[in-house]
Design a binder for these strands. Structure first.
Lengths: 109, 109
DNA sequence: GGCTCTACTGCGCAATGCGTAGTACTGTGC
DNA sequence: GCACAGTACTACGCATTGCGCAGTAGAGCC
């Protein structure tokens, strides 16, 4: 199975999770997700997700000048985002539990 | 988050898992997935997945007449399917672990 | 001046789950 | 006999969303 498909519907959650820790900008979110283990995440996917979440009203946004390159567009969670994160996390956890249940009878050994 | 998106890339795995238990036909796979907790899975998605997996050479197929309705197209795992199931399960498990890691710092408690 | 790293945007594509309609067989109730 | 529900499958088109790639642009290094 192409692991990239697994991100569908979960990248939002992953992005919200890293933003919950602290405000961040696109390039940095990509780095942090990859460090967390999502090594194959595409940068365009993350930027797209940030834009989508912002458009959906879940994020605040502000621009900060940088010493080592172009300006950075920081994003942070607002109340909508925090609440979205909580409900999404619950949905994910319960879904993952269901899948693990389905799979446990499959264990090869 | 729309929980339907969570199925992306995972429905294959779920279908393979129920077929691993025993051979089954589309209508029955839908029922078993819903009983397992995937209540929102659409029937067309399952039929589509079965056709896709069959076309990919992961399933065998045979038709059986039924007493209580139209014929049933049974599907079962072959070697390719079993191996696909094993690798997909591993990929999923590791991915889920990564996500749980990301989320554990988010816990509202 | 060209190269790399940083940082973001936009375009179009591919995968896949879903809604809906359609076909068709069996059994039940009138 | 006929309408209807339950069973069982197929086909068409849509929406979502992650990705590849190209493009723009600033800062530092050679």
């Amino acid at each position: 199975m192409d692991s990239s498909q697994l991100l569908k519907g979960v990248l939002d959650l992953a992005v919200l999770a890293v933003l919950a820790e602290r405000d961040s900008y696109g390039y940095d979110v990509v780095r942090r997700l990859r460090e967390a283990g999502l090594e194959d995440v595409g940068d365009a996917s993350v930027y797209g997700t940030l834009r989508r979440l912002f458009k959906a009203g879940a994020l605040t946004s502000y621009v900060v000048a940088s010493d080592e390159g172009p300006h950075r567009k920081y994003y942070g969670l607002n109340d909508v985002g925090r609440s979205l994160l909580q409900t999404s996390a619950k949905t994910w956890t319960s879904f993952a539990a269901t899948m693990n249940d389905l799979l446990k009878e499959v264990d090869p050994g």
